[in-house]
Design a protein around this nucleic acid. Structure first.
Lengths: 143, 143
DNA sequence: CTTGACCTTACCATCATGGGAAGGACTATC
DNA sequence: GATAGTCCTTCCCATGATGGTAAGGTCAAG
């Protein structure tokens, strides 16, 4: 398999395969006489592992650890579970952060009548800082 | 006010204030004879506007539009509301995406006993692709 | 032998932010 | 007035994962 075929089979772009090789995440592929990279099923399987891990949001740094565990036949599943739990916790934190942004924005948008007039609680809040949604400043703002 | 004081007053780092100036997001500040940037309350207010918008997840590109509306006393609040709604929708999409990742990972982690043994449904899934949680491959994997 | 599809390397861009170096300016203390 | 310390200036580099592009070599089918 050359890099294009490996890319199709694994779902990882040729560009990224070369990048992963350059950073040492995957070992350097074999080469033909002409210098083309050559891949076997084992390598494609590893690439699919990486692809799937990325789809679950793992940073490449963590995938390095996951790959090491994957290769280690005497690993302890507790180590894998810990990595997964850390990722779950990280996702949870980011979700909560974005949910808070969304709630704030929704609150502001609900208070904005959204018509042809210039008065806008959204701009008022952005100009005055948080927690001022019910200010006198709801009308007439701007620098 | 010099840049350090403006940074403290606005919550935007001096580094970022210079960056925003270089990209044209904010107009170039005045200078003292010695070349120090000088800021007044108006500029600090604008920086706080930017800071707050960033805190709500707006990309700088959108903040440019928000600032233009902020300055425009004949704006239509509908335009502001539309920008806010787009941001809400974007946040919602990202939240749903991350929630899906989290759910998948939680499902896998729940199925992993997390002990000293090497058998691990998490690695099995990563190696085999999605939807294989109940495969025979639950035990014994690795390249 | 030509054409087109593929490969190679190398460099640049993203997006917002921080770090650091080298050198000049201001302020407080001696 | 000298000195120390804190601040300012510009310039360059790094992040993380990915895409784009350009110049040139290779392969397979016609």
């Amino acid at each position: 398999m050359n890099i294009g075929e490996a890319a199709k089979a694994s779902g990882v772009s040729a560009k990224m395969i070369r990048y992963y090789e350059s950073t040492g995440l995957i070992p350097a592929a074999g080469r033909t006489d002409a210098g083309y990279r050559v891949y076997s099923d084992i390598e494609v399987q590893m690439l699919r592992f990486i692809r799937r891990s990325r789809d679950l949001g793992f940073p490449v740094e963590k995938i390095e650890e996951l790959l090491a565990l994957w290769r280690d036949r005497s690993r302890q599943s507790a180590d894998v579970k810990r990595l997964a739990q850390e990722q779950i916790d990280g996702l949870e934190r980011k979700i909560a952060e974005m949910q808070a942004m969304k709630d704030t924005l929704q609150h502001l948008a609900d208070a904005c009548c959204g018509d042809h007039r210039p008065d806008c609680p959204i701009l008022a809040d952005l100009g005055n800082g948080p927690g001022t949604t019910n200010n006198r400043a709801l009308t007439r703002f701007g620098p």
